[in-house]
Design a protein around this nucleic acid. Structure first.
Length: 973
RNA sequence: GCGAGGGUGGCGGAAUUGGCAGACGCGCUAGCCUUAGGAGCUAGUGCCUUCGGGCGUGCGGGUUCGAAUCCCGCCCUUCGCACCA
């Protein structure tokens, strides 16, 4: 270090070593949770101890440390705890690889991460540390399970679940992301297994409703949860098969019931076997096999062509009484609704596509709301004067060729009146042996002997056969709609999903769109064939896992007594010790399952599943309040005071899983009487990811940036040009920045400052090596500004008197107060750390020449320097403590109050007011505050300005607008 | 396809309520200092310019004295959901 040669150098490593343990030794971050006044609970999402944290992780914790330090200076009793989400597969897999115990691996990682926090200067109340894989924690995870079980919120059932063959365990719905296991990317396969579930669906409505209360959550997270819960309002309608079985369906459009011309069941629907006719059996079973094999990915591809098979069976449409065919198709999901749908092809895009493909009838039952209809007049179907007659009626049409048949008229009609006139005209003009159709707002087929409406499957058949007789090339078409769909002119008008007036629906015809849904629902209930229902996309939470490294499910299975929870005084059910030589679950460990029944004392078996790690993290924020408590999970009085968490911060990747589960568990505990609140996190902030440049060679894969040495970025091994892109830091892409390198090279303060200054914290951002040098230089400048001037600061009061200051002094004095205000608001209210740092830099930029000048006021100097150190200290605590001490203070900065600003200093006595002429900036005038406050005086001042007079001279002043304190705008001609 | 963000200099970004676009930083240019530093200091830096000024916040319209900001229509981009009946 330069220390020996230059005593004034910014020797960050010596400074950081001096203060590294100071704060924890003095206990500034230890919290008394029995406190009831002025408390503040700040929480970062606790990490999985993966081995080391990179600078991207640092963003999360540095934000927390900055806020915590400000709140401590505000005099609040602050709780900022940390723990480890320590169960889970990576530790187990690492243990297998090294033939060690997962805890050995986890423990080492925890120690490493703690050291990283220490080096960053990021402080926590370590006395409250929780580690989810330790018995004193998972005892309470098991206790929570038993409470849920006793309240009917945990149950076991056989279900088709997503099983990941790579991870050798089942996955929750939420853990299947885009049809892949969120951890390893393997496509899960469906398996029928007995599994434990938490009944989160009981809380679906409340989880949705209470989102409204979360005003201080980011909108996108609220939206994501809303979509995930997926509430839809509709009706359940019971269809009967010909054999008498009931098939309930869920629909959001009961008003379209009359248009249900077929049904579709999910391939795995239990009634398929009953419905299937002998000749369809082979086709059905091969389709079912194919559907079961198809990966989720294939099945979810939206633009995939519809597939399906007729069961051979029929059901009765309870509204129209028509016999309708029942099909199976994989676009109907067993997991949603009832696993069966009524298909209304005229008003649902998917059903329409399916009906067209398989030739099923399509009957419109809801009127278009725009009144638009189309009609294609075929060549020679009318005489040459027809177009003139259309003109006379002001009907819109285009003349275009129809295939190679000659020119046709492509007519577009608007409104019933015009349609009526057109139909009349067509009846009078249609040449013999022709027909003409009107589609859209009307479904009419004009023949030489009359008009047929497409209003039922019977009329569909009748119209089609007449058309075929007239025009044989359409022989292959199975329905009228299929025929019309062959003409591209009609394709955009054949189906619509709007709410419109009902038609072709018996007595309900004419019911207006706005009342249709309610009217039909009421009728269904009257008839006893259906009822209004609400359906949720959210499923119950599958929590069973078949691996070792998780909290054992504390249940016992007794042949005599059935399922029995482990008595609470026997918790925890400990994980058995074992050797890790391959993938295993508790079921594979000899002797683990053998136990006695707590009820009858007979031989019994323990449940061998462990819990999803999201159970561990669904309640940890409660445990921090009384983490040492051995006789209860937490103290209700303390928890009710400290929660909801005042500020929760973490990655947006947890927007659904963790945050939804935590909300559910909080509500469940509330309902059981353990908590006095229903939402765990009052205010949420999701920070963006830190990305870094990643280099990829087509031949040699990902390269470390340090190995890319050539200016033109070529592969060091083959010289090929590299692909350069930016990704979230990850080991596999070799673009991780190790905080140790930064701390060793520039110091932790520099890393902290740069991390906060990079950009808005909620956005993804690139880490750049140039950017960090700027932060380092700033700290150097601060150091070199203050240290040589320490003597000038000694023995001076720190309150400047503005009356004794010169012009530059007053300006600096104002700047100090303005900066304090901005930095406070930016940190505490706006979460805008980058602009807070920028404001501090601006203060520095004004302070710097003031110190250099020889007219500086000593008290102002002292006040400015003190303020600068104090407001900078949350960002760069090490160097600020050092400077604070060197400038003659004895206490720690954390003993100081966060500085207040004086309102009087924010009132400028002169203002610079911009003057616009015709919207263009033409001058800036300097006026007193009094003038600026008066619109009239401001106008006068503006017009008196030389440059403005030049601009206005000889012109007519039409308008003069003065906004006091802001600007003047003149309009001239 | 649906939903939510975002698009501003060479780069990251600022503009908090419709009121001076580009704060702050990086990079770059020129110079100074010398205990030759991972430093420090000074000046400049949106584009064009005939040096008057003109243009400029993805594109095209609109409202307004005044628009990065509000409205309408597009384009691009990131993220989430996605055959959800």
């Amino acid at each position: 270090m330069a220390q020996d040669r230059n005593a004034d150098a910014y020797d960050f490593s010596a400074i950081e070593a001096r203060w590294r343990d100071f704060w924890s030794e003095r206990g500034y971050f230890q919290t008394d949770t029995s406190a009831r006044e002025g408390t503040y609970y700040y929480l970062n999402m606790f990490p999985y101890p993966s081995g080391y944290l990179h600078v991207g992780h640092g963003r999360n914790y540095i934000i927390g440390d900055v806020i915590t330090r400000v709140k401590i200076m505000r005099g609040l009793q602050v709780l900022n705890p940390m723990g480890w989400d320590a169960f889970g597969l990576p530790a187990e897999n690492a243990a297998i690889e090294n033939e060690t115990h997962p805890w050995t691996f986890t423990k080492k990682n925890i120690e490493t991460s703690k050291e990283q926090f220490r080096n960053w200067g990021v402080q926590f109340d370590w006395d409250r540390e929780v580690t989810t894989c330790l018995p004193d924690y998972y005892k309470w995870t098991q206790w929570l399970f038993i409470q849920l079980y006793k309240n009917g919120l945990a149950y076991k059932k056989k279900a088709t679940v997503n099983y990941c063959p790579t991870c050798d365990t089942v996955l929750a719905n939420e853990q299947v992301v885009g049809g892949e296991c969120e951890r390893c990317g393997t496509a899960p396969e469906p398996r029928d297994l007995e599994q434990w579930f938490f009944k989160i669906t009981d809380y679906a409505q409340r989880l949705l409703d209470d989102l409204d209360k979360l005003e201080k959550w980011p909108d996108n997270v609220v939206k994501m949860q809303e979509n995930w819960i997926g509430r839809s309002e509709g009706a359940e309608v019971v269809f009967k098969t010909q054999t008498g079985d009931a098939i309930p369906v869920f629909t959001t459009r009961p008003d379209t019931l009359w248009g249900a011309t077929f049904m579709v069941l999910a391939p795995e629907h239990p009634l398929v076997d009953t419905l299937a006719t002998e000749q369809q059996r082979d086709a059905i079973s091969s389709y079912r096999d194919q559907a079961a094999r198809a990966s989720e990915i294939d099945r979810l591809a939206t633009d995939r062509e519809k597939t399906g098979v007729f069961t051979g069976g029929y059901a009765i449409n309870p509204a129209s009484g028509e016999k309708i065919p029942v099909w199976i198709a994989d676009y109907v999901l067993m997991a949603y609704g009832t696993g069966a749908i009524m298909a209304v092809p005229a008003h649902d895009e998917r059903d329409f596509a399916f009906a067209i493909k398989f030739g099923l009838p399509i009957i419109p039952v809801i009127k278009r709301t725009d009144g638009v209809a189309k009609s294609l007049v075929f060549p020679d179907s009318v005489d040459d004067n027809f177009a003139c007659r259309l003109d006379a009626l002001h009907i819109e049409y285009d003349r275009r060729p129809v295939g190679d048949l000659g020119e046709g008229l492509f007519v577009t009609l608007h409104g019933d009146d015009q349609i009526d006139k057109y139909v009349e005209l067509m009846r009078e003009n249609l040449s013999p042996n022709n027909w003409n159709e009107i589609v859209g707002a009307r479904w009419a087929f004009v023949f030489n002997d009359g008009v047929l409406e497409l209003d039922s499957t019977a009329s569909d058949r009748k119209i089609l056969s007449r058309c075929k007789a007239i025009y044989p090339p359409i022989q292959k078409n199975r329905t009228v709609m299929e025929m019309l769909n062959g003409l591209s002119f009609y394709q955009d008008i054949l189906f619509h999903a709007e709410y419109g007036d009902m038609m072709n629906s018996g007595d309900f015809a004419g019911t207006p769109g706005c009342k249709a849904k309610a009217a039909v629902t009421a009728w269904l209930e009257e008839q006893g064939i259906g009822k209004g229902t609400i359906n949720f996309r959210l499923h119950d939470w599958l929590i069973s896992r078949q691996r070792y490294w998780g909290a054992p499910i504390p249940m016992i299975h007794c042949d005599v007594c059935g399922q029995v929870p482990v008595p609470e005084d026997q918790l925890p059910v400990l994980l058995p010790e074992t050797k890790f030589i391959g993938k295993m679950g508790l079921a594979d460990i000899p002797g683990y399952a053998d136990t006695t029944c707590p009820t009858c004392g007979g031989p019994a078996k323990r449940d061998t599943d462990t819990m999803d790690t999201f159970v561990d993290s669904s309640w940890y924020y409660l445990r921090f309040i009384n983490s040492q408590s051995t006789d209860k999970i937490f103290d209700r009085g303390d928890v009710d005071h400290w929660l909801p968490v005042d500020q929760y911060v973490g990655g947006v990747e947890h927007a659904i899983l963790h945050l939804l589960y935590a909300r559910f568990i909080t509500k469940a505990l509330h309902d059981m009487g353990h908590l006095g609140f229903q939402e765990p996190f009052a205010r949420l902030f999701t920070q963006g990811m830190v990305c870094h440049v990643a280099y990829r060679c087509a031949n040699h894969g990902w390269l470390y940036p340090k190995d890319v040495t050539t200016d033109d970025k070529t592969c060091p091994r083959c010289g090929k040009a590299l692909e350069i892109s930016s990704f979230k830091m990850s080991k596999s892409k070799r673009n991780v920045v190790d905080p140790k390198e930064i701390v060793d090279f520039y110091g932790a303060d520099t890393e902290r400052l740069y991390t906060m200054f990079m950009g808005p914290p909620d956005r993804d951002i690139d880490w750049t090596d140039e950017g960090i040098r700027g932060a380092f230089r700033f700290l150097n400048r601060v150091w070199h500004l203050i240290v040589p001037n320490i003597e000038r600061l000694a023995n001076v009061g720190a309150i400047a008197d503005p009356d004794t200051l010169d012009e530059v002094g007053v300006s600096l004095w104002r700047r100090v107060h303005r900066t304090i205000k901005k930095v406070s608001e930016d940190i505490e209210e706006r979460f805008s750390f980058n602009t807070a740092v920028a404001a501090i830099m601006e203060l520095f930029n004004e302070l710097s020449p003031y110190i250099a000048g020889d007219t500086a006021d000593a008290a102002l100097l002292r006040q400015a320097v003190d303020s600068l150190i104090l407001i900078l200290s949350p960002f760069t605590p090490f160097v600020c403590e050092e400077l604070w001490q060197r400038t003659g203070h004895e206490d720690s900065i954390l003993d100081q109050s966060w500085p207040n600003y004086e309102a009087i200093a924010l009132e400028e006595d002169t203002l610079e007011i911009p003057v616009q002429v015709n919207g263009k900036l033409r001058a800036r005038i300097t006026v007193s505050a009094a003038v600026a406050a008066s619109a009239n005086e401001l106008k006068t001042a503006a017009l008196a300005n030389e440059r403005i007079q030049e601009a206005v001279e000889g012109k007519q002043l039409l308008k003069a607008i003065a906004i006091p304190g802001k600007m003047v705008s003149l309009v001239i001609k």
